[in-house]
Amino acid sequence: MDRKPRDVGSVPRRIWLVGLSGAGKSTVGPLLARRLGYRFIDLDGQIEELAGETISHVFRTGGEAEFRRLEARAAARVAEVTDIVVATGGGWMARRDIDRTSGGRVRVWLRVRPETAIHRLSRDRAQDRAPPRPLLAGPRPEAALSALLAARETAYAEAELTLETDGLEPEQLVEVALRGLRKLTEKEWKNRP
Rank of each mutant, 00 (worst) to 15 (best):
V174P: 02
K4D: 11
A150M: 13
T61R: 13
Q172C: 08
Y156N: 04
S10K: 12
R68L: 08
S122A: 09
E142C: 06
A177N: 02
T82K: 09
L181T: 04
R152N: 07
V108C: 02
F40D: 01
D42V: 02
S26R: 03
V106H: 00
L20V: 02
S21P: 12
R113L: 07
P193K: 13
G167Q: 07
E153G: 12
D128S: 05
P132V: 06
F67G: 02
R34L: 09
L70A: 05
F59Q: 02
S10R: 13
L173S: 00
R96G: 07
R68T: 13
A23T: 01
G104C: 06
R111T: 00
A65T: 13
M1D: 11
G167T: 10
T61W: 09
R3E: 13
A72Q: 06
E153P: 15
M93D: 10
L36K: 04
R133K: 14
L148H: 05
R35G: 02
G90P: 01
Y156D: 03
Q127G: 15
W16T: 01
S56W: 04
W189P: 12
D83F: 12
P132W: 03
G89Q: 03
R77F: 14
L184R: 07
L17M: 07
L184D: 09
E169S: 11
G22H: 00
A33W: 00
L36W: 06
K183I: 09
T162A: 07
E158R: 12
D7L: 11
T162F: 14
T154M: 08
P30E: 03
M93P: 15
V81F: 05
I55Q: 01
S122T: 11
R105D: 05
E158W: 12
L181M: 05
E188F: 13
D128L: 11
E66R: 04
T54V: 10
M93F: 06
A79I: 05
G9I: 12
A143P: 04
L110A: 02
H119S: 14
G63D: 05
G63I: 10
E71C: 03
P139C: 14
A130N: 14
W16H: 06
D99R: 06
D97T: 04
K187V: 08
V174E: 01
A157S: 11
G180Q: 03
G52S: 05
S146A: 09
S26Y: 00
T82S: 13
A74V: 01
L163I: 01
I47F: 01
A159E: 00
V78F: 08
L50K: 09
S122W: 13
R192M: 14
D2P: 06
G104L: 08
I98T: 14
I55G: 00
V81W: 09
K25Y: 10
S10I: 14
A74G: 03
V106I: 05
K183T: 08
